[in-house]
């Protein structure tokens, strides 16, 4: 008998449990769809970045040359044409495509852009310098090498993908 009494649930407790349960269920039903709606960009599968045609292999030399390429970028309901730049050169069999974005504060670097520094990438903003393979030169502001594009060659055409950090 005494054991049975221990299992008694008071009217107040019963109401607390059921009302909290029902209320929580309703609140979750309202909040969850909105939360999922809001965090959708985080859960969108990352698009496997298309490779874009940039240049013909015949045009490449052992000196970095500037190639601009444009592609359609889809941003939710907005589609726009984006233009990017790559500095490309060929060394033996290897084709190297470097991003022109300075790794210091994001200005645009140019090959031999400064006469005092031949055979180097130079950034006009704070005098950052990089070697031909993109390595940042000690004593100048940048802290890491220029980013490198994924490169692919098909039927004599050079395609590039995303620029990725070399470190």
């Amino acid at each position: 008998m005494s054991e049975e009494q221990n299992h008694n649930v008071s009217r107040r407790q019963f109401l607390t449990y059921t009302l909290t349960g029902v209320g929580g269920f309703m609140a979750a039903g309202i909040i969850l769809p909105m939360a999922r709606f809001a965090i959708d960009p985080v859960l969108q599968a990352e698009s496997a970045g298309d490779m874009k045609a940039v240049a013909s292999v015949d045009d490449l030399t052992d000196q970095p040359q500037r190639f601009d390429f444009s592609y359609e970028q889809e941003d939710a309901w907005n589609t726009s044409e984006v233009t990017e730049t790559a500095w490309i050169y060929q060394e033996g069999d290897e084709i190297v495509a470097l991003s022109p974005t300075c790794t210091h504060l994001g200005c645009t670097v140019g090959w031999e852009a400064n006469q005092d520094h031949p055979e180097e990438f130079f950034c006009p903003c704070h005098g950052g310098r990089f070697k031909k393979d993109g390595t940042n030169i000690e004593g100048t502001p940048p802290t890491e090498p220029l980013h490198k594009y994924e490169v692919e060659v098909q039927e004599g055409t050079v395609y590039v993908g995303k620029a990725e950090s070399q470190v």
């Binding site: 769809p33 999922r36 959708d40 907005n78």
Partner: peptide, 29 residues
């Protein structure tokens, strides 16, 4: 939550509504 995707602009308003309803998870709901 709707204003996270909606744009009050005559060029984009309709497209943004279509996007948030058709392409965003639970947008219809």
């Amino acid at each position: 939550f709707l204003t996270m995707y909606y744009v009050p602009d005559i060029v984009n308003a309709y497209e943004s509504v279509r996007y948030l309803q058709g392409d965003v998870a639970y947008g219809t709901i």
